[in-house]
Design a protein around this nucleic acid. Structure first.
Length: 413
DNA sequence: CCTCCACTGGAAACCTAGGCTC
DNA sequence: GAGCCTAGGTTTCCAGTGGAGG
């Protein structure tokens, strides 16, 4: 009899509920067949890449635009079309797609390129130059050309200050014979050019394609197409869709955000057992996405950062008026570490952790000067204390620390 | 105008854990 | 197994600093 019950649940999923027809259509990595309001960019990109089919080297391309403006979708769309065409026409063309923010370091970018070419490499241990040589050797042996897409390249440039990797990549063609390597750099950050060496920049941006944020009516068109594939008929009405587009347009025209809103709103309605997505669902979805983002960020922090958050939380409760400074945090932090028999980090490091948390928006830290009484950072929580308590009290190690009463409460200032 | 606090934040060295080549 | 490479986190050291109080 249980079998029947369970089968019922499975079947429900298989058949689909009365809301979603195909949820995947709303995922970030879904590449639709039609990309509204991006004809200009698609044509530009295709025009620049076309010479590849003729064995000619393509110009390096720089693509700018904020998150959710269609950069990734358009480039993947055009490149997969290129790849298909190249297979028909003969020239050996490989495409490596690298997300620099996920990849993180020079070494791993090269390692990823290697893997996408089918060269096995260890995840650490080799000199960067060695990886370079292996790629060169492979390309020369196979007589094949390569297009590398470096998505979110700003993340990489900030870490690698001399831009060694980019410099080497721009010069790689000097060591190739008739084949070539073309670079497509994609950046979210419009000011990031300033970090680049002028020579590298001029080499990388032989062509530039700019993606402007979507306007509310453009987002609406995008949503309209997806809605037909993602939802059953009449699940979402005109006004909810308008609201969705308007909210996302407020967030610098982010299509990704608009699709998230739609998906989460659908899930909320589904859970309520209602067969219509209403405006309230969209508004709730907005809140839920924000809450989930914070929870996710909090729970995935390293241990010492979590402790720093707990300390800030506690001090915020015990002395809400005074404002918490680095010295306070470090004192209590040491107490907490002792209470769970953990070796504390140095003050320098904790100060660094506070900066990292500030960057994530979990803490707000501001440098202030108390004149005679020194210069330090004033720190407060950047997210609601409720969320901190909810998320971190579930934590095995840190959860118990919320009961702690600081021994030496800092003096008033 | 000078002092001096309580740090800030840069730089470099160090450590661990992996892996290569010879 | 020595001697080299990698990443990533941390410690050590220290010059620099905004501004209240003398």
């Amino acid at each position: 009899m249980y079998e029947n019950q369970v089968e019922g649940i499975f079947n429900k999923i298989l058949i689909g509920t009365n809301i979603f027809l195909n949820r995947d259509v709303l995922r970030h990595d879904y590449i639709p067949e039609i990309l509204p309001h991006r004809d200009e960019q698609i044509n530009r990109l295709a025009g620049i890449l076309a010479p590849a089919l003729n064995h000619s080297k393509i110009s390096n391309i720089f693509i700018y635009g904020k998150t959710g403006t269609g950069k990734t979708a358009v480039s993947k769309f055009v490149l997969s079309a290129l790849e298909n065409k190249a297979r028909e026409v003969e020239p050996l063309l490989k495409i490596s797609y690298i997300n620099c923010r996920l990849t993180g370091t020079n070494y791993r970018v090269l390692a990823d390129i290697c893997r996408s070419l089918g060269i096995e490499v260890p995840f650490t241990g080799l000199a960067v130059g060695e990886l370079f040589n292996r790629i060169l050797k492979f390309l020369n042996q196979q007589k094949c050309s390569l297009v590398v897409v470096l998505d979110e390249i700003d993340a990489l440039v900030r870490k690698d200050e001399d831009n060694n990797l980019l410099y080497e990549l721009t010069r790689i063609n000097e060591n190739l014979n008739s084949n070539w390597v073309g670079l497509i750099c994609v950046s979210n950050d419009l000011h990031f050019k300033e970090f680049l060496d002028a020579r590298i920049l001029s080499c990388l941006s032989e062509e530039e394609v700019v993606f402007k944020p979507y306007l509310a009516n453009e987002l609406y068109d995008i949503l309209l197409i997806r809605v037909k594939e993602a939802f059953h008929n009449d699940v979402i009405d005109f006004s909810s869709l308008k609201l969705c587009a308007a909210l996302a347009a407020g967030e610098h025209g982010d299509a990704r955000r608009a699709l998230d809103l739609l998906r989460v709103a659908g899930e909320l309605a589904e859970r309520e057992g209602i067969e219509k997505v209403k405006e309230d669902h969209i508004r709730l979805a907005q809140k839920k996405i924000e809450h989930d983002r914070v929870s996710e960020a909090l729970s995935s922090l390293p241990l010492h950062s979590k402790i720093v958050i707990v300390v800030t939380f506690l001090l915020n409760n015990f002395m809400p008026k005074e404002g918490v400074i680095t010295g306070n945090i470090f004192e209590i932090y040491k107490e907490l570490c002792k209470s769970i028999e953990l070796e504390p980090l140095t003050q320098r490091r904790v100060s660094g952790l506070i900066n990292e948390l500030d960057l994530l928006g979990i803490l707000n830290a501001r440098v202030v000067s108390f004149g005679r009484f020194g210069r330090t950072k004033k720190i407060r929580l950047g997210v609601s204390p409720r969320t901190v308590l909810d998320v971190l009290s579930e934590d095995e190690v840190v959860g118990g620390l919320f009961q702690y009463i600081p021994k030496c409460l800092p003096k008033r200032r």
